[in-house]
Amino acid sequence: MANKFHAIEFRDVSLAFGDRVVLDRVSFAVRYGESKIVMGGSGTGKSTILRLTLGLIKPDSGAILIDGEDITFYTEEQMMKVRHKIGMVFQEGALFDSLSVYDNVAYRLREQKAPESEIEPVVMRMLRFVDLEDAVDKMPNELSGGMRRRVGIARALVGSPKIILYDEPTAGLDPITARTICELALKLRDLEEVSSIFVTHRLQDIEVLASEYVVRDDFGNLIFEHEGDKLCLINTKFIMLKDGNVIFSGSDEEMRGSGNPYIRKFLDNER
């Protein structure tokens, strides 16, 4: 059954806020294990797509499927079960100000009434994964932007969701931290078979996500390799949004070869 459905599917989804049409019959699908990179100018509805996927807002028309389940008309209670499968990295981190880093990361397990003896190892493993073990007792307002973002990622990963939504996780970060975050996404994609939507503007991210992959060698070490003659990555695809429509959908090679003037401008400008 696993391959019969897509991890995420949008069918003719439309949404307007008042008079402003944000999405106009948008359709796309994310296969299992695939990373879908969503691009588009500011205000084109990228965050809105993620919020629809989580069921935080409902579309005006069309259907949204998660794991083959049509969630379009799900109530908040029904959505709770679906959300267990999804981790979301919010654009500004959205950490709980009143909770420490530890409690932020532990939040989901606490809500599920897991015993503290189970929570602690998971939280520490996640914080190690994002390289923030030292910050465990800090409060969110003591963290830098990049650290907040990484705590947000750690929090999203608790419970090992098979779908992860990243909302511009690298925006405004230095290249090294941004690269670290992309590598986290690669590890999840290639080693954990996580399906994801990755919203980003940065060409450097696109470069990393579309042409590198991770393997584990015989000693358990992680090795980052470039795609080349050996293999061509097929688990990363792109869509470009403009004026409420998907104006491009395909692989990075296809995107670079595209003659669409808007895509050309987008790719050239940021370089």
Partner: peptide, 17 residues
């Protein structure tokens, strides 16, 4: 301020009402 900083959304995303 929890609402505008998306903490309420995060709460819902993490499974609490």
């Amino acid at each position: 301020s929890m609402l505008v900083s998306e903490q309420i959304d995060a709460m819902r995303a993490l499974g609490s009402d």
